[in-house]
Computed example of a mutant assay.
Amino acid sequence: MKIVSIVLLLVSAFLSLKHGWDAFQPPTPQQAKMMADLGITKSFVPVVGALSIAVGLLLLFPQTFFVANVLNAVIILLIMAFSLRAGNVKTALIEIPFLCLPLLLIWLKYPFKF
């Protein structure tokens, strides 16, 4: 069980850091269209990117593990809410497994705590 928890923690931290880093890169035309469809402005993207990077780093420390997972779940819920508001049910459904990841990590607890 501990190995599963470690793997999920590393995957979650990697995804958060990657998505945060990608937010500071020039968007592809597809990404720009998706953000426009969801109603996400260009000025909001770096905020979400910085928050995602912070979450990825905070996941690695036992003192901030719970808060980082809650923030991660909130970010995913926001993406789902923006998708549903825009009428894009497919994107909202795709985010469900990603919403389960921080909740599962909270349930499994921090794996490196001695």
Rank of each mutant, 00 (worst) to 15 (best):
S43M: 09
F98N: 08
I40T: 15
A86P: 11
G56H: 08
L10D: 01
G56L: 04
Y110A: 03
Q25L: 13
A36K: 06
P62N: 05
V74G: 11
S12T: 06
S12K: 00
A23I: 00
R85D: 09
G87C: 05
I106R: 03
E95Y: 07
L10K: 07
I6E: 04
T28H: 05
K42H: 01
T64I: 00
G49K: 07
L10A: 10
S83E: 03
Q30Y: 08
E95I: 00
W107M: 03
D22T: 03
S5Q: 00
V45T: 11
K109H: 06
L57I: 15
V45I: 15
L93M: 09
F44I: 14
L10C: 11
A13F: 01
G49H: 10
A32H: 03
L77N: 06
P97F: 04
K109W: 04
A23V: 00
M80V: 11
V89P: 01
K109R: 12
W107C: 00
A73T: 01
D37K: 11
A81W: 10
A68W: 14
F112V: 08
V4F: 08
I75A: 10
A68Q: 13
L101Y: 06
L99S: 02
K2Q: 14
F112A: 11
R85V: 02
A50R: 13
L8E: 03
Q30W: 06
P62R: 04
F14G: 02
F66R: 14
W107Q: 02
V74C: 11
R85Q: 13
L51M: 15
T28I: 00
A86F: 12
L9S: 03
G87T: 02
T41R: 07
L10W: 12
